[in-house]
Nucleic acid binder design. Structure first.
Lengths: 341, 341
DNA sequence: CGCCTCGTCGGAACCGGTTCCACTCACGTC
DNA sequence: GACGTGAGTGGAACCGGTTCCGACGAGGCG
């Protein structure tokens, strides 16, 4: 429990000089700095973050709010954030908040409002006005990732464009009976990620003269492999002319569709083409055509923005995150092919 | 920016009394407490954790070290820990440490050694002597989860028994040509989770008079679905008498095996029985027979132990975590059946 | 009725850093 | 040679709580 006063005494300087020497702020003669550093090393001095943050008001800690840990996208983002934060000397405090329960209010009022974090990164959760106000009022920057928030800097891919792109890929292959496995609430919440991807689908279909509801089918399902499985069974299980292509809202959902197709004896891509969204780690194994996004990199970017807002990056790189959507890329594999005639 | 001195002034008491009233420590008259609480509520007083931890030495923060976020088991454990910690008023600081890189030393020396956390929960990472000593020396309790650590309280299932149980299930079904998809390093590190499961497999095979190496095959692979996929292709892809049953070291690996079997035109369970370990969220969808474990509950338990070590739970429930292995359960589904004759 | 005990409370020290301010001193300039 | 300048340093206040210790009054006991 060596304190800075011990270091100062050992180095023969004042506490003030020791602090300046170790923190790098303020002018200290080179020779003095070396003496102080040597003294600190000798007694194994470790500064108390509590004492520092008490006076500076900075905790060197960023809160991350995330609804799921075990969905691939979120896990990847979290890893990216963690790495970037660690490199910058920040700690990451995790809040796993799915719904708007009492838990959530408690986290905002009790944990985040306290001086436990300097900033907040919210992944895939829509913050309420009150929640945003509560944080901003205390001068804590917020950055949203996935799901644009009004009033706070948001990093997100263009989900509508991605839905459009995926659907157009299927259309270009000659498919006309195309189904969409959408995420829960896609129709009810047009501004959600699911809603925007659905919108892109509808837009492409309409532009191709394929009135949705006529031959296009949309089924909403949970964002998981079992969700894709049961959803696909619903979509393709009944007799009649089946869709020849399926646009799944995420790769995990698409994986479930693979399994359902196998169960139904439908071959891929012969009888059914499947495209997903994400660029999931497993998509190569499935041979899944997908629109890739890069969640790890997105997490890193979110940290960049946060650090800039905290006045760390200062000038440095100008970073063109001026509202431009994050990059995505169509990767064609073996799960999509020309429509059977 | 309301400080406790403001509360005290408003309530007409001293800082000392205000602190006692709000923290619940020390004797305060009921009427005084009510006045202080009313004053605190009125000006929206929020205590500074930095100030409190500076003097008490407690941060109300627990560090969690985890090698992956995106493996189901780890994600589930993390969620369980988060929930339990939050309920107890603790924050969770996440450290995503896979290998023994320089990053890792930095986390231990710079982050954990500082007074940023009160305790550490290490999931599936083997701590070095030095790392353990460094934490214990500073009075920070450590709890290990999955992969027993010498010298620190460890929560873990009995991996050898689980491997035994899974293999015996296949043996009871009459299988004699049984392959094991083991985790990386299973042979090289007999005390690892992978090593112990492999050991259980060998033990069951030997007891059944089936000399490993004769008709039993072991292949080591990455703990993921693609790992299971390529591993299974290796194991079953070449001609000759194939195994009729497969014991996969984890459910995710088993899922990959399903996919590989489909690719090879092998029916399940007709030509190949598959059993996994974990009780993965998706195992029901696959109809996978598995030995379930309960990672969310394990995380909760780890928090219980940590809180006890921090002197929170004090007496309360005696909790029989006296080294007894965590619960597991064999769940038979449609992926295993009698050996073909 | 005197004394002890206990509940209640205030004053003040303290946790361990950071930073403002004043001061010294060497150096360059006119 | 007088003076301004700025680097380098120390003293002390301060961040916002917690806790030790002592004071005080009321009630119980002998």
């Amino acid at each position: 429990m060596a304190a800075i006063s011990d270091v100062a005494r050992l180095a023969g300087v004042s506490k003030a000089t020791a602090s300046r020497a170790l923190s790098g702020r303020g002018a200290v003669a080179d020779e003095t700095r070396r003496r102080v550093e040597a003294a600190a090393a000798e007694i194994g001095f470790i500064a108390s973050p509590a004492a520092a943050s008490l006076v500076t008001g900075r905790t060197m800690n960023v809160g991350v709010i995330i609804p799921f840990v075990n969905r691939w996208f979120f896990g990847e983002v979290l890893e990216g954030i963690e790495r970037a934060l660690l490199a910058a000397g920040y700690d990451l405090t995790l809040y796993n908040l799915a719904d708007h329960g009492p838990e959530r209010a408690r986290v905002f009022d009790f944990f985040l409002a306290r001086k436990r974090v300097d900033a907040v990164i919210a992944i895939g959760v829509d913050l309420s006005e009150r929640e945003i106000a509560s944080l901003e009022q205390r001068g804590k920057p917020i950055v949203a990732l996935g799901g644009a928030e009004a009033g706070v800097p948001s990093l997100t891919i263009d989900d509508r464009a991605v839905g459009l792109l995926a659907t157009e890929h299927l259309l270009h292959l000659g498919h006309t009976r195309i189904a969409h496995l959408a995420g829960t609430g896609a129709a009810a919440m047009p501004n959600s990620v699911h809603g925007r991807r659905r919108h892109g689908f509808l837009e492409a279909m309409t532009a191709a003269g394929l009135a949705p509801g006529g031959r296009a089918h949309i089924h909403e399902t949970e964002m998981s492999m079992p969700g894709g499985y049961t959803g696909t069974l619903q979509l393709l299980g009944h007799p009649g002319r089946r869709p020849t292509a399926l646009f799944a809202v995420s790769d995990e959902v698409a994986f479930g569709a693979f399994r359902a197709a196998e169960h139904l004896g439908i071959t891929i891509p012969g009888e059914l083409s499947i495209i997903g969204i994400d660029g999931h780690e497993y998509s190569e194994m499935f041979g899944l055509t997908t629109v890739e996004q890069y969640p790890g990199e997105q997490g890193r970017l979110a940290v960049d923005v946060v650090l800039r807002l905290l006045g760390e990056g200062e000038e440095a790189d100008p970073l063109p995150d001026s509202g431009a959507p994050l990059p995505t890329r169509l990767v064609v594999r073996s799960s999509t092919t020309s429509a059977p005639r």
